[in-house]
Design a protein around this nucleic acid. Structure first.
Lengths: 212, 212
DNA sequence: TTATTTCAAGAGTGATCATTGTGAAAAATA
DNA sequence: TATTTTTCACAATGATCACTCTTGAAATAA
């Protein structure tokens, strides 16, 4: 009904009857819950309320739909992480990142854990390309953590002998582990306790001149 | 050829021509690499060098084979973890656990990461029972960590105000995160640096009377 | 011998997989 | 109104899924 692509020059034929971005959000949640291999086209179309035909017309293929779903997740769901990293103080940024993750991973209205952390860790040989794509997303996240740490060092907030890559991997590991435990039923409180222990370790890298 | 079941009373007919436990080990590695859903019967039988017939005769079903593969993993591959936890000093035990995990997760002759940490985190609805089973294995591991911490507290090695469950989840999260990063190509050295940061945090819970 | 069991090799089960062809219906342009 | 374009719903595509049956030979125990 509503044309979601803002500046499209009003295409000719019959307009699509469903909201593309709303359908994408549902597909994203389905992939998030079931994984790439676990979410069949039948499952996806049933959740989205459209036919396979409409799905392929709008999203080209299952792999392309998954790619778009990852983008949707990053921008719509993972936005809290980017927001946290923008905090002025680097320790406060990671504190907010981890504490917010603990909450987000246990939201009752959504699949548990982080979609990207847990996606396609194992898969059939046919789907190796998909696995590589998600692995690259995880590496990009790791690089973002690393860069934020480097920034904290250069701003004098973290000790100059901080191993940025090791600390980034440490924080990343905590987030990935929190994801798994959220899936297994851990509560937000459980995860906040884990986050707190990680934050204490991060805090030890504060530069001596900085406030604590 | 060789009958691996030690106390079996020599069955009547033709003996099986393949080594059951060797076949199980290969199945285990295949599940470890590809996951439960990603490892098809065709893939498994090709790797094991037997026909589907022989597989079903020896292992009943794919789900039962997977159950046995998890047991194989625990006893054959995950033995280093149990061994580490037996160390007298609890901090030394976790240090050995994490450092050994960093090495084991990157062995060139095996699939990377921990089979159980990464298994069936997402799956088709049909396989929910399998996912629950693996989740219970992870919870059992978490309980083992928790119990070892409690033991360390009661032996006076850890501070009495240590939150055992939180610390167990923290250590578990690090292991789960190291698994993911091993999958994504991190080196043993990368993971040892992560482990080192976790060990430093664990060390802070030493009882004041204990040596460091 | 006789009974039992597994072997290899292959075919076949129904179900589901991702993907697509068909043709009618709907909404745009001409 | 007539034409063009796109989406719709329904059904089918070949491939693969886990799993089983067949056939006939081979290897063991009773």
């Amino acid at each position: 009904m509503k044309n979601t692509t803002v500046n499209s020059p009003r295409s000719r034929g019959r307009p699509r009857a469903f909201d593309r971005s709303a359908a994408l959000a549902i597909a994203g949640e389905t992939f998030w819950q079931l994984g790439y291999e676990g979410a069949s086209i039948a499952e996806l179309t049933a959740a989205m309320g459209i036919t396979p035909q409409s799905l392929y017309a709008a999203f080209t293929s299952k792999a392309d739909l998954y790619r778009e779903a990852l983008d949707w997740y990053q921008s719509e769901v993972g936005a809290f992480a980017a927001a946290a990293l923008e905090k002025e103080d680097v320790v406060a940024a990671f504190k907010q990142l981890l504490m917010e993750a603990a909450k987000q991973f246990c939201r009752p209205d959504r699949p548990r854990g982080c979609m990207i952390s847990m996606a396609v860790l194992t898969c059939a040989r046919d789907n190796d390309a998909i696995a590589d794509m998600v692995a690259r997303e995880r590496e990009a996240t790791m690089k973002a953590l690393h860069d934020r740490i480097e920034q904290g060092i250069s701003q004098g907030q973290l000790s100059t002998d901080t191993n940025a890559m090791a600390l980034a991997r440490f924080i990343g590991a905590i987030i990935q582990g929190m994801s798994v435990q959220a899936r297994d039923g851990a509560s937000a409180k459980d995860l906040e306790a884990v986050a707190q222990l990680a934050i204490e370790q991060i805090t030890r890298f504060r530069a001596q001149s900085a406030t604590d």
